[in-house]
């Protein structure tokens, strides 16, 4: 005869409270940079990603060349201002390391921001070739357009510092969360739960800032 099953009230202890799992903290930490210099491209095999990237680069070059040729044919004054004013970008385009795509974007965008006012002035004054050449003789115009590119360079220098600051600030918060979880676990399970090296200074709280 089968034995009657006993009631085991305590057979199912409160697992949520007894072993709090710091999932949020763990996920956050997992998202923290691991030190690799390569940005991760997801969704495609590695070889395919490389070929795709190379193809994209050629497409952009081809697109730019088509645009330039088209401009040369149909909007020569604008082409002259753009070609001259965007010189830093063309140089960056030639010398830039393609593994850091945002560098060229930054320089190009900032350079363009410095060129756009003069393109506007050209279009407002009738889009004359003479006016374009006259602009190119003005050093203030060159200075303004190149200042845009320089601003871009500055942004590229400041950007990583700001990023580091953001990451470190987030790390402090994550460490605080982990410490809270760790303390909750120790409180629940006692100091025996600590690895041997931690048990020595078990009472010493981990730095939170």
């Amino acid at each position: 005869m089968a034995k009657p099953q006993r009631k085991t009230k305590l057979a199912n202890p409160p697992s949520r409270k007894s072993a709090p799992a710091p999932r949020v903290a763990a996920a956050s930490v997992a998202a923290r940079p691991t030190g690799s210099m390569q940005p991760t491209m997801r969704g495609k095999p590695k070889g395919q990603q490389k070929g795709q990237k190379k193809g994209d680069g050629y497409n952009i070059v081809a697109l730019v060349l088509i645009l330039l040729v088209a401009m040369m044919a149909f909007a020569l004054p604008s082409f002259i201002i753009l070609f001259g004013g965007m010189t830093p970008t063309w140089i960056a385009f030639i010398v830039d390391d393609r593994r850091m795509p945002y560098r060229l974007n930054t320089i190009g965008a900032c350079n363009l921001a410095g060129v756009i006012p003069f393109l506007g002035s050209l279009w407002l004054s009738g889009h004359e070739l003479s006016h374009a050449f006259m602009m190119l003789t003005d050093p203030i115009v060159w200075a303004t357009m190149f200042l845009g590119a320089t601003t871009g360079m500055g942004a590229l220098w400041v950007g990583p510092h700001i990023a580091a600051m953001i990451y470190n600030t987030r790390a402090i918060k994550q460490r605080r969360d982990i410490e809270l979880n760790r303390r909750a676990l120790i409180e629940e399970w006692g100091v025996d739960i600590l690895p041997p090296q931690d048990a020595v200074d078990k009472m010493k709280p981990a730095p939170t800032s």
């Binding site: 945002y102 900032c110 950007g159 953001i166 990451y167």
Partner: peptide
Amino acid sequence: GQVRLLGYKLAAYFG
């Protein structure tokens, strides 16, 4: 690397 990547991304957004 990743810090620089994020930094450059921020710079690009600025541009």
